[in-house]
């Protein structure tokens, strides 16, 4: 554990908490992509199957449980409790176009061809692109509430911090995982446009509004 990894995990946790707070306080999931949230639930479940096979640390186990539980709580709020506020007309991204290619890629490019490892690899590829339905929704509506912007910023920062963690681990421990690094870089690149808007608009107190 190093400072970048810890900061990344905390940023990830903050993102999830911000999202739950936004939905709970406003009693609405307007502006949030249920499709992205479904993909994140798939990511956590397929990645954290090792909860039952491998013990890393108490921290690791607890965080995995928090990520799985909170993603299902988010889905419950969106698709059951505040279903009426769900923006499904704008949330029209076809997630099978992400799920299938990620799965095929995981079958082809993985560290070892075992069920758990292929699912882990699938989750890494899928996480890289899971935010696309959310970014698509923001681009369709042309705007995002400030708390949604903070959520996206924290969620994007998490993998960017992991990139620093991987650079650190390469030099400090000689550890690297090319699959995670490659996917993490793609994931971070997808947020760049949003980061730019966040820094130039939201941090200056303006609403995140895309140019018409």
């Amino acid at each position: 554990m190093n400072i970048f990894r810890l900061a990344g995990d905390l940023s990830h946790l903050l993102a999830i908490i911000l999202l739950l707070i936004k939905i709970w306080k406003t009693r609405s999931c307007a502006g949030i992509s249920g499709k992205s949230q479904i993909l994140f639930a798939v990511v956590y479940v397929s990645r954290y199957l090792d909860l039952v096979t491998t013990f890393i640390s108490l921290y690791n186990t607890l965080m995995k449980l928090v990520f799985i539980t909170s993603s299902f709580a988010t889905l419950y709020l969106m698709y059951v409790k505040f279903k009426a506020t769900y923006d499904h007309n704008h949330d029209s991204f076809r997630i099978e176009f992400l799920l299938l290619p990620c799965f095929v890629l995981a079958l082809l490019i993985n560290a070892s061809f075992t069920p758990l490892e292929v699912l882990w690899t699938f989750s890494i590829y899928l996480e890289a692109v899971a935010i696309l339905p959310q970014l698509f929704l923001v681009s369709k509506t042309g705007e995002a509430e400030s708390i949604t912007s903070h959520y996206l910023f924290a969620l994007g920062s998490y993998r960017a911090l992991y990139l620093l963690n991987w650079i650190y681990r390469y030099y400090a421990e000689g550890h690297y995982d090319l699959i995670a690094i490659f996917a993490g870089a793609i994931q971070t690149i997808l947020y760049c446009d949003f980061f730019y808007l966040y820094i130039t608009k939201v941090l200056k107190g303006k609403k995140l509004q895309l140019p018409a």
Partner: peptide, 10 residues
Amino acid sequence: GNMQTPHDEL
């Protein structure tokens, strides 16, 4: 390089 399982990150 070590492509290691178990994966120790989140």
